[in-house]
Structure formats: structure tokens, C-alpha cells
């Protein structure tokens, strides 16, 4: 049968999401039930920085997988293997979440959830996107080339602003950490606002890029 039946995995929520020394999770302690998993930075034990050296993601993940992969627990019985499946799936998920500045930015400002999706880009951009789509619908090769060039320029500009916003956010985060109120982060800072607006633009621009790439095949 398609769904495994002989080693039913209990949905053990992992954690306890108590951050140990150096912001590292203590994987050995059982979590209180129903707790939310920690975010990707905490899972990998990396500092919350948007301008993160991506090599560190791979290094951290490989180090954790050496310890947490289910193959390491085979001799400890099915329960240990089941827990390791969940633990290592969290690590793998964290790696995916932290690959690429756009994804890291979406994570820290909560862009992936409903609040983020509701965020509308400025009307001027929506108008441009509408025009571009219209020109693509007409579909002659010359205007297609023009649109592709314009979208590429707009993307490059948006990404530069994303990097600038990220730098600003990293500085704000560093200050928050130094002030010792890392958990407070309730107020939307200027940096958050910049990131939200650029991510909103990029969502539309990425769709256009996809459309352009799809038509070229």
C-alpha cells in the first residue's frame, strides 16, 4: 500500500525549542506537546542574519545530519529512528528555507503567511505588470524582447533594494540582540517594511520571469 503501515510514525513534535548555549537546540530533550518548531536559524544554530554566508548553511546542516540522520539510530530501535526522521526533516527544511536571500527575508518578516500575502505592492508597479502582461499576450517577438529587458532591469533594481533592506534589517537585529530584547520584535521596524514591499514586488516580477522563461522553451 502506498502509505507505510509497518512502522507507523507517531507525530512526535520535536524540540523543546529551548535554546541552549550559543543559540543551539538541545535535540536530546523531549518537547512539550503542541509546541511550534523553532525557526530555521535556530534549527541550524546560525545567527539571525539575512546577509548570511550560505556556505555556513551547508556546513551546519552536514554537521547536524552526521548526528541526527535516522541511519545513525538504527541500532537504537524504531522509536529512536522515528524521532530522527522528524529531527532530520527539520534540518532539511531549514536548509531549504535559508537558501537565497529572498527566502530568508520572507522568513523573518513572515511573508509566507497570510499577512504577508495580503501585502500589496505599490500601484505604479501593478500598472507596469499589467502592461507587460498585455504586451506578452499580444506575443510578437520584438515586444517580447523589450518586456524581457524591462523586467530584468526591474528585477535587478528590486534585488538591490532587497539587499539594502537586508543590511538595514541585520543592523536593527544586531541592535535588538545587544539590547537584550530579541524576543520583543513585535513592532514592525522600518527595515521590515522595506523588505515586505520589495518581496511583494518580487512576487509579481518572479511570476513574469517564469512566464518569459516558459515561453522561451
Amino acid at each position: 500500500m502506498a502509505i507505510a503501515h509497518d512502522e507507523a510514525l507517531r507525530p512526535c513534535v520535536v524540540g523543546p525549542w529551548v535554546l541552549g548555549g550559543a543559540d543551539r537546540l538541545d535535540w536530546r530533550v523531549a518537547p512539550p506537546p503542541g509546541t511550534q518548531p523553532p525557526d530555521a536559524f535556530a534549527v541550524l544554530g546560525l545567527p539571525r542574519r539575512l546577509l548570511l554566508d550560505e556556505d555556513r548553511v551547508g556546513v551546519a546542516a552536514r554537521g547536524l545530519m552526521r548526528e541526527l540522520h535516522p541511519d545513525r539510530f538504527h541500532r537504537d530501535g524504531p522509536e529512536a529512528v522515528a524521532r530522527a526522521q522528524w529531527h532530520s526533516s527539520l534540518v532539511n527544511d531549514a536548509v531549504r528555507t535559508l537558501r537565497g536571500l529572498e527566502r530568508r527575508a520572507a522568513l523573518v518578516v513572515g511573508f509566507a503567511d497570510d499577512v504577508g500575502r495580503a501585502h500589496k505592492p505599490p500601484p505604479a508597479l501593478l500598472e507596469r505588470v499589467f502592461d507587460w502582461n498585455e504586451q506578452l499576450d499580444e506575443g510578437d517577438a520584438a515586444s517580447r524582447g523589450v518586456v524581457a529587458a524591462e523586467v530584468a532591469t526591474a528585477c535587478a533594481a528590486a534585488r538591490l533594494r532587497l539587499e539594502a533592506g537586508a543590511r538595514q534589517w541585520d543592523v536593527a537585529q544586531l541592535l535588538r540582540e545587544q539590547a537584550g530584547s530579541a524576543a520583543a520584535g513585535v513592532t514592525v521596524t522600518d527595515a521590515d517594511a522595506v523588505l515586505l514591499s520589495v518581496l511583494g514586488e518580487l512576487r509579481y516580477l518572479d511570476n513574469l520571469l517564469e512566464r518569459l522563461a516558459g515561453g522561451a522553451d
Binding site: A2, I3, A4, L9, W86
Partner: peptide, 26 residues
């Protein structure tokens, strides 16, 4: 949904109101 190290899918369900695990019919 969990794809395990074998590439095989496992599914579990939980009622978020009661926190209870649900028996899934597959």
C-alpha cells in the same frame, strides 16, 4: 506528511482544537 529516508510517505493527522491525534483512514 513525512517522506522518510526510504523515500516512503508517512501521514499523520492532529485535531488542532483538541490536540488529539486522529486515526487516518488511508
Amino acid at each position: 506528511f513525512l517522506i522518510d529516508a526510504n523515500g516512503i510517505l508517512h501521514v499523520t493527522a492532529r485535531d488542532l482544537r483538541t490536540g488529539k491525534e486522529l486515526a487516518l483512514e488511508v
